[in-house]
Each structure stands twice: as C-alpha cells, then as structure tokens.
Design a protein around this nucleic acid. Structure first.
Length: 94
DNA sequence: TAGCTGACGCAAA
DNA sequence: ATTTGCGCCAGCT
C-alpha cells in the first residue's frame, strides 16, 4: 500500500533542502528500498502533490529525468533557480 | 492471481 | 560518448 514506501518517498523528497538534489536511487534507499528507483518515479508521477519538489529528484548519472509539471526543461530551470549547477542537461553534484 | 508498465540503475558492446 | 539489454520495486489492469 502507499503508506509505507510511497509515503516514505514523499517525505524524503519533501525533506530535500533547497539547492540540493537527490537521485531516485538515493531516495529509494532512504525510503527503504535501495533498488526501487523505478518505483520512486512511479510514485512521483502518480502523485501531483505540490508539496513534493519532484524537480529536486534526478537520475544517478545527473540526468534530469522527467517532470510531470512542465518537462525536463522546467525542472532544469527550477534547479538552476535554486542554486543547483546544471551542465548541459545534467546536474552537477557538489 | 498473473502480467504489464514505468520520471531508474548498472554493465556490456 | 552512445546504445542495448537486464534487473529491480511498487502500482495498476
């Protein structure tokens, strides 16, 4: 049910500080399943919760991934606006 | 109950 | 650097 994992994922993402990004795998790991990166993405797209800064969640290789609110370009812009360094179409972890 | 899908992750070619 | 294939987990049909 969506009261253990998905809820967990939401909480984790909401707890991501501004100017900071996390990978799906990392979020999944914190949520309780280090291999549930896909499940994390599924949760995000299924949950249109504005309280969840899904744009702070990116792929492990730095790719932006997708975004249910305007596309990867909007996601990229948002991250840049928060102080996250973007290289081309990828995020730079610091 | 079983099967398919998907905003991923990693390895190999 | 890019593409292909396989594995993983949770949710939906």
């Amino acid at each position: 049910m969506k009261n253990n994992f998905s809820q967990r994922v939401k909480t984790v993402v909401i707890n991501i500080p501004r100017g900071q990004v996390m990978t799906y795998g990392q979020v999944a790991a914190v949520a309780g399943s280090p291999r549930a990166a896909r499940a994390v993405g599924n949760v995000m797209k299924n949950n249109f919760d504005l309280a969840i800064p899904c744009h702070r969640v990116v792929c492990s290789d730095g790719s932006l991934g997708d975004y249910n609110r305007g596309g990867s370009k909007v996601k990229k812009s948002k991250l840049q606006a928060e102080g996250v360094r973007i290289k081309g179409n990828s995020v730079i972890f610091n």
